[in-house]
């Protein structure tokens, strides 16, 4: 028992201090730990570059990293890269928002209402098992290859992870806390805002992170099935003209996009879930 509030607070901080200490710690090679993850990619790039310069690999199959970087810079300077990236981002974002919002609403709906759960969940669980790529021909038949069709395909991919994890999260609200809300006479709205949503939030964010990943996947597929702009189109177009370096530029762009959205959701997690114990952060990062 801490009679002195200040002492207790200092004690609470002391728990987190060793972790920060560990992050700064340097061990072999004198490298800080965060830099160690960069070792392998850098080594691969160096070997690759060397092999390309020595003429060990065909430039048509595996252009040197420096060549790829030069192409990327050229496209960036001409504005072409920006246009493709922006077109792709718009599609992915629209599909993700549509699918994610629908998933969130339906997940809340089935999580909260017993009859809604019995009515909807079995069907949705069944649809979830359909491989998304198998639906593409149907979408093309129904909606053509236009923007609508693409957006819908991405939305469909984004829907399931958010739906599923929202449903799970809503169900995870503790019975013991529910009893407290009864004693304190929470209204239905207060119950949802004070208990159910915050309890579900870690799951919802996890679902959003998975959905964002699926969105980029579906985007690349949708753009390769027919488009006139976008990173997927750029890759497909480069393949036709055997511009392998541009194919690589496209792949790297997708990689960056995926990484950035992931980092974005993680930032939200750190902000919205800061009430969690410090040592639980580690578990989150493992996901």
């Amino acid at each position: 028992m801490a009679a002195d509030p200040q002492a207790a607070k200092a004690q609470a901080r002391a728990v987190t201090a060793p972790r920060a200490e560990a992050a700064r710690q340097r061990d072999w090679l004198g490298l800080p730990r965060w830099a160690q993850g960069w070792l392998l990619p850098l080594a691969v790039l160096l070997v690759w570059e060397a092999a390309a310069r020595a003429g060990l690999v065909s430039p048509a199959m595996l252009p040197a990293p420096s060549v790829i970087a030069a192409s990327a810079l050229r496209l960036l300077a001409s504005g072409e890269l920006g246009e493709h990236a922006w077109a792709s981002f718009r599609r992915a974002a629209a599909g993700f928002l549509l699918g994610g919002a629908t998933g969130l609403l339906l997940g809340l709906f089935t999580g909260l209402g017993r009859w809604a759960q019995r009515l909807l969940d079995p069907s949705l669980q069944m649809l979830r098992t359909v491989p998304l790529l198998a639906v593409i021909p149907l979408f093309i038949l129904w909606f053509g290859v236009g923007e609508f069709s693409k957006g819908l395909l991405i939305a469909l991919g984004a829907f399931f992870p958010v739906y599923f994890h929202t449903y799970l999260g809503v169900r995870s609200a503790e019975a013991k806390l529910y009893e407290v809300t009864r004693v304190l006479q929470f209204t239905r709205l207060q119950l949802v805002r004070g208990l159910i949503l915050p309890a579900a939030l870690p799951n919802i964010l996890l679902g959003a992170r998975l959905s964002a990943g699926v969105s980029w996947l579906m985007l690349s597929v949708a753009e390769m099935m027919g488009a006139s702009e976008g990173i997927g189109y750029m890759i497909q177009d480069a393949r036709v003209y055997a511009q392998t370096d541009l194919v690589f530029v496209g792949i790297v762009l997708f990689m960056l996009a995926g990484k950035l959205t992931d980092a974005g959701v993680r930032r939200l997690e750190l902000r919205w879930l800061r009430w969690r114990r410090p040592f639980q952060d580690g578990k989150e990062k493992g996901l």
């Binding site: 013991k176 407290v180 004693v183 006479q185 004070g194 009430w275």
Partner: peptide, 20 residues
Amino acid sequence: EGPSVEKGVIFQEPRLFPWW
């Protein structure tokens, strides 16, 4: 008849809302 704030309850666990 049913729980209400007239009858405050303290459980064995504090049962606080962790996000508040």
